[in-house]
Structure formats: structure tokens, C-alpha cells
């Protein structure tokens, strides 16, 4: 059995598989390395899993059905089936198509990160002049567009931003390997978060500061989590969002499809300092 070590937001995972092709792909796609037992959360890949997607294209983008029973996260999808024991920190997955291995890992990470004092936020995140900017909104709001409109963007995420508290309780942004369009080499964690921006496409470019009490209602639906109404996690996600909003200002960013939104951001944030 091959064991490969992956890290997501400094959370180690050991993926076990007999398949050399999967090992090679994980090493390349997630910068994985050879691992020892007990080095992290264990994920075992079922032997008949395969990287190639065969005749299942209609299922790409379809989320899994998810539930938690007796502390076990269960994910069911036409192209993958996975479980993850929250108590033991061990999971198993069968998949047909590499996209679905990624989907399983991403879903497990969105759950585990909450237990580690973090959040997976539906957003893109750009590093610019030493600070990170989180752009969020529902699908079609422009999370990818702002990346395209930015000159030489350093991209921490284009779909799932991984935020996690450090040992001082401050949120840091971690490199997200869960990308939809813009891939990048590994980026180290960064704690300097300039703001969270809810995108509104408009003919004018301006920012509106959102009061934190309003922002919490806006940000809660942006947190990736596979299941609704799981009491323990709802409590944690709510508290983590409240903590995040104490540290990071939130704005509505009205923007049009050019790069002038950066001038507005610089002007408003410059005044805030």
C-alpha cells in the first residue's frame, strides 16, 4: 500500500492506495510526498477507483448527497461514494474520475477545517501588495472576473478560500488547491487580510461598508459545508464567522468589468487605516 502525505491549510492527510497512477497524480496535483502511518487524517482509496472519467460527464459539478450518521460523514454521488469518521479521523472513498476524488477531499476538508478553527469560504482570494483580498458572492457574481481583471494576480483561491485561526486566534489565509480555473504553485499562509468584498456588478464603481451585524447574515451562506442543520457544526460556523467579522472589514463592492475597482478599494481602505 502506498501512502502519500497531502496538506490542506496545514492539516495533514495520509492517502492510502495500491494504485501507482493515483499516487503520481496526487503527488503532482497536490504536491504530495511519501508518508508514514499516523502522520495525519487517513483516507483510504478503494482498489477499483480510477482517475479516468468514463461516460459520466453529466455528473460533473453535481454535489454529493451528504449526511452524518453516528459521527460518520456519508457522501453519495453517481461517480463517488465516501465515508469519513469524524471521531476517528479516518475516511474511505471509491471514485470514478479524478474530479470526484478532488470533490471528496474538498468536502472532507470543509468539514474538518471547522473543527480546526477554520472556514472554507465560497470566494476567490488575491494577494496584492502584501495583503489578501477576499471576493465573494453567489455563482456569477464575478469571483473569477476580478481575478481576470487584475494584473499579475497572486491567487490564493478561485473558488474555495481556506481560512484558519493561528495560535494567536488570528485568521490566516491558506493556499487552496481546490481550484476551478486558475491554478498556482503553493503559497505560504498569510495573516494580513485587507477585507471581504461582496461583489455586485454595476455601471459605477464604489464600495459600501457593511456593518458586521449585516455582514454575518451575508457571510453565513458563503461558508462551504455539505450538510444543513448539524447542530454542533452550525454553532462552530456561526462563532467562527462572528470572530472573522471582528477581525476583517466587509464591503459591498460595486464594480464594472475593468480594473478600476482596485482604485476604489485602495482609496477606501487607505482612509480606514
Amino acid at each position: 500500500m502506498n501512502k502519500i502525505l497531502l496538506e490542506f491549510a496545514e492539516m495533514p492527510f495520509v492517502v492510502k492506495t495500491h494504485d501507482d497512477e493515483i499516487v503520481a497524480w496526487l503527488a503532482e496535483h497536490f504536491s504530495g510526498e511519501q508518508a508514514e502511518d499516523g502522520a495525519g487524517t487517513e483516507i483510504e482509496i478503494a482498489p477499483d477507483s480510477r482517475l479516468t472519467l468514463v461516460d459520466n460527464y453529466q455528473y460533473l459539478g453535481q454535489p454529493p448527497e451528504a449526511s452524518i450518521n453516528d459521527g460518520i460523514l456519508i457522501l453519495e454521488h453517481p461517480c463517488y461514494k465516501g465515508t469519513f469518521s469524524l471521531a476517528e479521523g479516518k475516511g474511505k472513498v471509491w471514485f470514478s474520475g479524478r474530479e470526484f476524488l478532488v470533490s471528496y477531499l474538498r468536502t472532507v476538508v470543509t468539514v474538518i477545517i471547522v473543527n480546526c478553527g477554520g472556514l472554507a469560504l465560497h470566494s476567490s482570494c488575491i494577494l496584492r501588495n502584501g495583503k489578501t483580498y477576499i471576493f465573494t458572492g453567489y455563482s456569477g457574481a464575478g469571483k473569477s472576473t476580478v481575478i481576470k481583471l487584475t494584473e499579475d494576480p497572486v491567487i490564493y483561491s478561485d473558488e474555495v478560500t481556506l481560512l484558519k485561526k493561528n495560535d494567536k486566534g488570528l485568521f490566516s489565509i491558506h493556499h487552496s488547491p481546490f481550484r476551478s480555473e486558475f491554478h498556482s504553485d503553493y503559497l505560504p499562509p498569510t495573516a494580513d487580510i485587507a477585507g471581504i468584498f461582496f461583489l455586485r456588478q454595476d455601471s459605477r464603481v464604489f464600495l459600501e461598508k457593511m456593518p458586521p451585524k449585516e455582514a454575518i447574515f451575508a457571510i453565513l451562506p458563503m461558508v462551504f459545508f455539505p450538510i444543513n442543520k448539524t447542530q454542533l457544526f452550525e454553532n462552530k460556523i456561526f462563532s467562527l464567522c462572528a470572530d472573522l467579522l471582528k477581525q476583517v472589514p466587509v464591503f459591498k463592492l460595486h464594480f464594472r468589468k475593468d480594473d478600476t475597482f482596485w482604485e476604489s478599494i485602495d482609496t477606501v481602505l487607505g482612509k480606514e487605516v
Binding site: K213, Q231, E234
Partner: peptide
């Protein structure tokens, strides 16, 4: 949670804020 000096309450059974 107190946010900006005012209370925000979550009902974990209902998932409502």
C-alpha cells in the same frame, strides 16, 4: 455573539440567525 455591541442569536436547532 455580540457583534458591534448588539446581540446576534443563533438557533442551532433551526439553523436560523
Amino acid at each position: 455573539r455580540v457583534i458591534d455591541g448588539e446581540a446576534v442569536i443563533m438557533d442551532p436547532q433551526q439553523g436560523k440567525v
